[in-house]
Nucleic acid binder design. Structure first.
Lengths: 347, 347
DNA sequence: ATGAAAGCGCTAACAC
DNA sequence: GTGTTAGCGCTTTCAT
């Protein structure tokens, strides 16, 4: 009676119950090769009646794959990342693996801690959207893991890992060009947190487009809520060159700006054309419907996971292979034209 | 040179490097009690230089808690469940545990499989929003796990597990009463998938309110997309008693119905008052803004996790305790009045 | 076709 | 304070 109570059945209990050796049971739960039909039946019966499930930890301890991969993202509740996670999980499942998702709140300390937790679980590989992807501490830690890593949405520049990102630069540039094509001469670019790689790329795209067209660059990066959006837009409209077009670099900004414009009674697309980065469910439902740049969100998650498993599978014979060139997969975006940019008749 | 290449450092390697025994290292990584300062420093140096992280699997194998809990939900990408997950993860972290989220797509087979996967990982406990919470197969499986389980959003009626749910019945009843208070005499109730526990409760609430007020019961449960919503609303308006109020039981239905009403040029709140179940980010942004019943989404996840850990902590001395009465925590909802129901001036 | 036994990395008695 | 050692549940040679 020294047995820990409350504990699930073990392989050797199954073996005893079935009157066979542990090896045989092991064979059965691993496909049942080299086992006679009768033995197989016996063992299966024992497994069934004891409600046996192999202990993953013990298998892991034997040193093979853990069949577990980690995904580190800023937030699970963020639709962008949760969609990525869902897609990645599907790929993991298809590869007989479990995806463990952890969120960091864009905080470096959490990030390091989470990496360590996943390392402790000996995940086979890691997908990461790093809060600040350039931190030395993070890079060193990731490097020391010696496991396949894929960066998603935000490349890790000073580390030799492949990344999967949307083509933020091109997307932004062509979005702004689109507004220019609608005859806009004073296009403002609005956003929050401008430290993020993605946002910076979009800003770069905005700059490229306006510069090439010889337009003023009106950049406001301080929009964190409705109030800051309100103040910002008020200010813009009182300035010497009030905007006739607005390019918002992220979902929440788009929404805040839209709300403010509505509140102020400023109509879209005239006098203001609005174009947002990132699509969202109700962009087509609001009036006017909002034109957006759509990222291939699901694809980001899927491709990142696929890339990871690819590395995983070929990582065995890696001694011989020369240092792989770093791959960055850039996924193309899509411009969804609705009413707020002036493409569709204004209802 | 028999060492598996590519493998992370082990405790005994650290011990050797530091010139101490394994116990000492173990003590250090578990808080460093009963270790002299010098030894501690030595060991920590060794840990640092080897980039050592304790192998979780080995710890688990020793038989204690895995410090891991599972969350089974229909979809990670669904904002409702991802918010629950985020909140639950915070609680898990606070209890020094890892939350593993898996999604089932509301499919029983996936569900069973996922339960088995988590069982294999020997999670300490489980939070589950079951696709069909009444399935025998699921109940049997869960029962056989012998671990603390908490149901979320959808109670598991024929199993002795506590559940955390919003008060769907009361919420729906008072929502409908609210419409009645606005003078509505013909209130339609629209939804998709009516098998879900939550939806059924909401229907019950709708029935109770209309019955008590002596109103007709107009129930349409076949709205799965824009088109079905369109057909349904067209039909309702051609009927003998066209509705003057609409109560939509889930997010997507609310949105489809809103889109259709807009398309048909039917204004809100007159001639049609609209009230939806579940809040969403843009409900306040669309015109007219949509009145909704708001569930305490975060709380659901948080409370469920808290309840689970509570069970976990008191589960040791459980031989003596009589069979605990099943607890169902019912969280109250909130009616958010915007314009679509007629509460605010119609702008 | 089947089993005995070693060992994966760690913790917890139990010695010293 | 510190080290020795016996397992935890499983896979995997190596015999039979």
């Amino acid at each position: 009676m020294k047995r820990k109570k409350n504990t699930l059945a073990t392989l050797s209990q199954v073996a005893r119950a079935a009157g066979v050796g542990t090896t045989t049971v092991s064979r059965v739960i691993n496909g049942g090769d080299r086992v006679s039909p009768e033995t197989l039946a016996k063992v299966n019966r024992a497994i069934e009646s004891l409600g046996y499930t192999p202990n993953h930890a013990a298998r892991v301890l034997k040193g093979d794959r853990t069949k577990t991969i980690g995904l580190i993202i800023p937030s699970i509740a963020d639709p962008f990342f949760s969609s990525c996670a869902e897609a990645a999980q599907a790929v993991a499942r298809a590869n007989d693996s479990l995806l463990i998702v952890v969120s960091t709140g864009n905080d470096l300390k959490n990030e390091l801690e989470n990496v360590n937790v996943l390392a402790g679980h000996r995940v086979d590989g890691l997908i990461i959207a790093a809060a600040n992807s350039q931190r030395q501490s993070l890079c060193r830690l990731l490097q020391s893991l010696r496991m396949p890593i894929v960066a998603i949405d935000r490349p890790i520049l000073n580390l030799n890992v492949p990344s999967v990102v949307a083509n933020n630069f091109l997307a932004a540039r062509s979005a702004v060009r689109h507004l220019i094509g609608h005859g806009r001469k004073n296009i403002g670019c609005l956003t929050g947190e401008s430290e993020l790689f993605t946002i910076q790329e979009r800003i770069r795209g905005y700059r490229a487009a306006t510069k090439q067209a010889g337009l003023r660059c009106i950049l406001e990066a301080s929009i964190h809520d409705y109030d800051s959006a309100f103040r910002c837009i008020e200010r813009l409209f009182q300035s010497k060159y009030p905007p006739d077009g607005l390019f918002t670099l992220k979902n929440s900004t788009t929404i805040f700006v839209f709300e403010v414009l509505q509140k102020l009674g400023i109509r879209m697309p005239d006098p203001i054309a609005l174009l947002g980065f990132d699509d969202f469910e109700l962009a087509s439902t609001v009036r006017p419907s909002i034109s957006v740049v759509r990222q291939p969100v699901q694809d980001l998650g899927r491709v990142a996971a696929e890339l990871l498993f690819e590395q995983l599978f070929k990582s065995e014979p890696r001694e011989g292979a020369g240092r792989q060139t770093i791959r960055t997969l850039t996924l193309e975006t899509e411009l969804i034209c609705r009413r707020s940019c002036g493409c569709l008749p204004s209802d």
